[in-house]
Amino acid sequence: MTASVKAIANLALSRRSFSAAILAVLAMPQHVRAQQPEPRITALDWAWAETLLALGTRPSAIAEAELYRERVVTPELPRDVIDLGLRSWPNMELLKSLRPDLILSQAGYGVQATSLEAVAPTLALPLFTPERRPLQLAEAGLDAIAARIQREQKALQYKTEFEQKLSEVRASLRSYDGRPLLIAKFADERIFDIYGPGSLFDDVLGRLGLENAWTKSGNHWGFSTSGLDAVARNPEARLVIIEPGPPEKLFDSALWRAIPSVKANRVVTIPPTWVFGALPSALRFASILGRALQPS
């Protein structure tokens, strides 16, 4: 077990005894419990927001709610969830006014946990670290959140379903030709973010038995930013583009058509999938990719 996973597993109860409060509610008779308001949980990071939703718990507020709906997509975010502004710097006055019972954040990103603790008990969980194992940390994060809100059984159920669905996707890919994949997203008209070791998508490819054509370690989040020449230098790869796809001007250009994977019609485009997500994003990516790689 890695140091980060151990740290998550051994998280202490907060000074405001959030878990004790949840246990007290669960101990109430059902008719009394039904009258109790749900804990107000704020998620400043989309990975932990989608994890909370996967556990069947609705966040009262998250950062950049509308962009979540565009880029993360599923699990679906209820329309009445309050938007707290930027993930990197949320509206702290609004956050304080909501009086949350718990704040979920990503360790090492955005507002420091020490500042958030002054507002409410905070669970700051690591996901992208020097260990470069985001899928493992995503599962550890699911367990940590579930333990904090007393949803351990739901977490176990979700992990079982996750493994089953990954196995189904892997089985569906038995007819795939085995060609390495280049997973890319346009950063601008001619620049790609390409996902390699240390990215969530690289971990998913490994679980599906697929080869990643991009072996460079890249940055802290596991991607490298490169031009079209990087794609051209991988002539045997199948290019997987996360929407939005290439701008129309580039798509119609001789430069684009000269790329080997484009010339050979080895390009697939998949719907938006959150590249910095947790288990739900990993599952969405696996499911969409599995369908995209089926023979036409």
Rank of each mutant, 00 (worst) to 15 (best):
M1K: 08
M1W: 12
T2S: 14
S19V: 08
S19K: 12
A20L: 15
A20V: 12
I22K: 14
A24V: 02
A24Q: 14
P29A: 10
Q30D: 15
E38D: 11
P39Q: 15
T42P: 01
T42L: 08
A43Q: 03
D45S: 09
A49N: 06
E50K: 07
T51C: 10
L55Q: 10
G56F: 04
S60V: 15
I62E: 06
I62D: 06
E66D: 15
L67C: 00
L67A: 14
R69T: 15
R71V: 08
T74M: 09
L77Y: 13
L77I: 13
P78L: 06
P78N: 08
V81I: 11
I82E: 12
I82D: 02
I82K: 09
G85V: 11
G85K: 09
R87I: 05
S88T: 09
M92P: 01
L94N: 08
S97N: 10
L98F: 10
L98W: 11
L98S: 11
P100H: 13
L102F: 06
L104A: 03
S105R: 14
S105M: 06
A113T: 00
T114A: 13
T114C: 05
S115A: 14
L116C: 11
A118N: 12
P121Y: 08
T122S: 05
T122H: 03
T129Q: 09
P130A: 08
P130W: 03
R132Q: 13
R133A: 13
Q136E: 15
Q136C: 03
Q136L: 14
E139Q: 08
A144V: 06
A146S: 06
Q150C: 15
K154L: 07
T160R: 13
F162R: 11
S167T: 12
S167F: 01
V169Q: 02
V169N: 02
R170N: 05
R170V: 02
R174I: 01
S175V: 09
S175L: 07
G178E: 14
G178T: 12
R179V: 07
P180T: 05
P180F: 13
L182P: 04
A187N: 11
R190L: 10
I191K: 13
F192P: 04
Y195E: 08
Y195H: 15
P197Y: 12
S199R: 09
L200M: 15
D202A: 13
L205S: 12
N212I: 00
A213D: 03
W214L: 07
K216F: 10
N219W: 01
N219K: 02
S224R: 01
T225L: 00
S226W: 04
L228F: 01
A230F: 10
A232I: 04
P235H: 04
P235W: 00
E236R: 12
V240D: 02
I241S: 10
G245Q: 10
P246L: 06
E248I: 11
E248T: 15
E248W: 07
E248A: 15
K249G: 04
K249H: 07
K249T: 13
L250N: 08
L250T: 06
F251H: 07
D252W: 03
W256D: 10
W256N: 03
W256E: 08
R257C: 03
A258F: 01
I259G: 02
P260H: 13
R266Q: 14
V268S: 03
T273I: 12
P280N: 10
P280H: 11
S281E: 10
F285K: 05
I288D: 07
I288M: 12
I288E: 14
L289K: 10
Q294L: 07
P295Q: 04
S296D: 09
